[in-house]
């Protein structure tokens, strides 16, 4: 049994819908769900104004339609599951602390910023600021796992403190900027200035990349922990080659401006 919400009317200005979350809807009947408030710009409206609701009393939500103008879905969610069959807008899964979100399409900027725990998987592309800190905050995600099958744009994992972010395609500039700890794995190309201000943690990439002058080459080795990660990613259908799993990686350490205790691992052909 699931709760299904299918978009029948496209909002003409951004719709904010943090109520679309198992935490808020799981215990409600269909009629109650229809009456829940969403904000259409500065107007308070209801879920029924935009969605056809079916099902009730379930911690599993299925959303249908082009939701790219809808923001804050799954904000603060702590359990259950949201499946989104389409594109979705910004701030998906903000500060979520549990549960799972799976998106079949693309997502907007600020995917799961300041996440604590839980899981997000995106089959398409993501915007800027995947798993980042909001402006001014000293720390981004504290845990959890974010898997993007496609590309992501700038500032992936900005100031992340723990957890894992995987980009199946290319990532933008400043991947892992000001990172405190945790792991970012990029299977495609990195943008420029990866790991600027990196304190601890690992950024792994399967392609070669020009690094900042504050990163220094230390060695080529076969990191054993990486195998576990890559085998797991392979099981999710991400394009991991066998030789990468057992492969050699160049280890670059930095950022020397900070503690020099972070690492960037580049797959060594």
């Amino acid at each position: 049994m699931t709760i299904s919400l299918s978009l029948h009317t496209q909002p003409d200005v951004p719709l904010e819908a943090e109520l679309i979350s198992p935490d808020k809807l799981a215990g409600l009947t269909t009629a109650e769900i229809e009456k829940q408030t969403v904000e259409h710009g500065n107007q308070k409206t209801t879920i029924a104004d935009f969605f056809t609701v079916a099902g009730e009393k379930s911690d599993s939500l299925v959303l249908e339609g082009d939701l790219s103008k809808i923001k804050h879905i799954g904000s603060g969610m702590s359990f259950g599951k949201i499946n989104i069959n389409g594109d979705v807008g910004a701030h998906l899964g903000t500060a979520m602390s549990g549960g799972e979100i799976v998106v079949e399409g693309n997502v907007g900027d600020w995917l799961a910023p300041e996440m604590l725990a839980g899981r997000v998987e995106v089959k398409g592309n993501a915007g800027h600021m995947v798993g980042s800190a909001y402006r001014g905050s000293p720390a981004g995600i504290l845990g959890g796992e974010i898997i993007i099958h496609g590309n992501a744009r700038n500032e992936v994992g900005h100031a992340m403190r723990n957890g894992m972010i995987v980009i199946g395609g290319d990532s933008g500039d400043f991947t892992g900027v000001n990172m405190l700890a945790g792991t970012i794995i990029v299977l495609g190309e990195l943008g420029i200035r990866t790991g600027a201000g990196l304190r601890r943690g690992s950024v792994v990439c399967m392609k070669n990349s020009k690094l900042l002058p504050t990163f220094s080459y230390s060695c080529v080795y076969q990191p054993t922990y990486l195998r576990l990660y890559l085998l797991y990613l392979q099981s999710l259908g991400l394009g991991i080659r066998e030789e990468q799993i057992m492969g050699h990686y160049e280890r670059w350490c930095g950022d020397i401006i900070e503690f020099n205790r972070g690492e960037i691992l580049l797959y060594h052909e």
Binding site: R193, A196, L212, P213, T214, S216, I256, I257
Partner: peptide, 17 residues
């Protein structure tokens, strides 16, 4: 950015290639 970053490293007494 690369230039400023290299200068920061030099200010902090690190070597730059």
């Amino acid at each position: 950015f690369e230039l400023a970053w290299a200068m920061r490293a030099l200010v902090k007494g690190h070597t730059v290639d």
